[in-house]
């Protein structure tokens, strides 16, 4: 659940050693024409808020993050994927209302259905200036057929294998990647194992102390299911 007040508060914070998120947004949106960054707050313990960069501006934005001395983020330490299923999200919208008694705020909770998408997350550090991480994300349009994002391998060479891994396990297609093949699974493999709706092969009969799903699977193979 996103609290709009909290979100703007978090946007005033800064990643270690870097300007505040507001300042980063200002610099980037000034330099890249048409760029609109979406701030994604993370109020949880890791305290790593991030920006979602639209795919068409990702390469240009990444180049500025690497080359601009205010950032100098020359090292991409981690690329990973996230699978978001369709979900219902609650949003709190604040209305200011002026009545006869004065000004008051009305909170309205709006439920809306958010279609699923895949996400590629990049953790950027600066080795030169010893700071970071700045987390940026790219999102696909959906989980089925529009799963393209821009590859940032031309900017950070270290992203090459990790983007292949995200492609292998989540099925995100990286446009502009020099060599987008599966890296962990074999080439003939069809599925994407880290997706939340992945169905694993029925390739073992029992385990010594089956619980939950494993127990149900064991019952299909053995009369006593190994659980008695």
């Amino acid at each position: 659940m996103r609290d709009p007040e909290k979100s703007s508060e978090l946007e005033e914070t800064a990643p270690p050693g870097l300007p505040s998120f507001q300042e980063i947004r200002r610099i980037l949106e000034e330099r890249v024409e048409g760029l609109r960054l979406e701030f994604i707050p993370n109020p949880a313990a890791p305290d790593q808020s991030s920006f979602c960069v639209p795919t068409e501006f990702a390469l240009e934005t990444a180049r500025i993050l690497r080359d601009d001395p205010r950032f100098a983020l020359d090292f991409c330490s981690n690329v990973t994927g996230v699978d978001w299923l369709d979900q219902t999200v609650e949003e709190t919208i604040l209305h200011r209302e002026t009545t006869d008694e004065g000004e008051r705020t009305i909170k309205e909770i709006v439920r809306r259905r958010r279609p699923g998408f895949l996400e590629a997350v990049y953790h950027l550090y600066s080795m030169r200036a010893r700071r970071g991480p700045l987390v940026i994300r790219q999102r696909t349009a959906n989980r089925i057929d529009r799963v393209r994002v821009a590859s940032l391998t031309p900017i950070w060479r270290s992203a090459e294998f990790q983007e292949r891994e995200v492609y292998d396990l989540f099925g995100v297609r990286f446009e502009g990647h020099p060599d987008l093949r599966r890296i962990l699974m074999w080439d003939e493999f069809k599925d994407y194992p880290m997706r939340k709706d992945y169905v694993e092969p029925d390739d073992y009969e029992y385990e010594p102390t089956p619980q939950g799903e494993a127990a149900a699977k064991a019952r299909r193979h053995y009369p006593y299911g190994g659980a008695r």
Binding site: P223, Y224, R228
Partner: peptide, 25 residues
């Protein structure tokens, strides 16, 4: 062989005969 979802075959049934696994109640 590498199959689309698993190895093909997933096991050599002529070779692999697991003992029936029955645990005492």
């Amino acid at each position: 062989a590498y199959g689309p979802y698993d190895l093909d075959p997933p096991k050599n049934t002529e070779l692999w005969h697991p003992k029936p696994f029955v645990r005492d109640a």
